[in-house]
Amino acid sequence: MAEIMFWEAVRRAQDEELARDPMVLVMGEDVGVAGGTYKATLGLYDKYGPDRVIDTPISENGFTGLAIGASFLGARPVVEIMSVNFAWLAMDQIINTAAKVRYMSGGQLEAPVVIRSPGGTAHQLGAQHSARMEKVFMGIAGLRVVTPSNPRQAYGLLKSAIRCNDPVFINEHELMYNLKGEVPDDEYYHPLVGSEIARPGRDVTLFGYNISVHWCLKAAEILSRQYSIEAEVVDLFALKPVDRDGIRESVTRTHRAVIVEEAEPAVGVGAEVMAIINEECFFELDAAPVRVSAVDIPIPYNHTLEKAAIPEVDDVVAAVKKMFGV
């Protein structure tokens, strides 16, 4: 098993699928000649040519719609939207078409399109470049939403997403492309549903996804070392549909839950997981579940304010300490 970076994992998945199936194509702004803003398509333009690795105009709703239309006839487009903030412009086609066409055609048509895009707050990118949109997509019936926390998932989820016959939105993170991790040398398909236990524990479950898995893991270490609290970290790499069984099983073991999300709390992943806990295993709880979320404001440019607006490891530790009264 080789250690590679997140961007290399995304690149490898696309390379293999482009080589395997002539109907696979990759499109987006600066994905071709430039090799992608985060290098996720580096070298693919030279290898597969401009008709399959396509530099698009800045027309997000247009080229996403074009990809969806092509997928009606069996093309397998992988659309890179440079930043999720620009995916707002393509919401019409993603939500009104991709998510609904199978249903409203009574199963005659399908849109096997993959849309991958980095989100999250990076460093001082300001209000219009710091969106965290996973919770929006998570609320749409007819879409699959996954969000990798490491290179293995990034690779395997993308491989499965390309072959899956549903539209899949892959939520990546601007700050994670250089993250290193092991990826199997042989081809590997990660399931698009379920969750993973990133760290076993017995006292409390920390639910995270994408970047917040890393905050949870760090918090779990601190909690173990300094407070002898053994936290289980559950990685919700699939947000739609989200893993009800996995949530129930973990909470049934630990009887406590903290959900850590980078987005604002309202109508979010934390709210959804709490509702599921309520529905699935309320009587297993020893304490009320807690969310650690961003402050409910547009993201500020100023560094100090930005830091104050989004959660960090210390906030996770503090939430658990409060729950245990230590």
Binding site: I58, N85, F86, W88, L89, Q124, L125, G126, A127, Q128, H129, P300, Y301, N302, L305
Partner: peptide, 26 residues
């Protein structure tokens, strides 16, 4: 000019009728 909330892409000076810089192309 935007009290540190906006940053380079979001300069605003409404008193001078400069209605702002916006980050989304178009």
């Amino acid at each position: 000019s935007s009290r540190g909330r906006g940053g380079s892409m979001h300069i605003f000076d409404v008193a001078n009728r400069f209605m702002g810089g916006y980050a989304l192309v178009g």
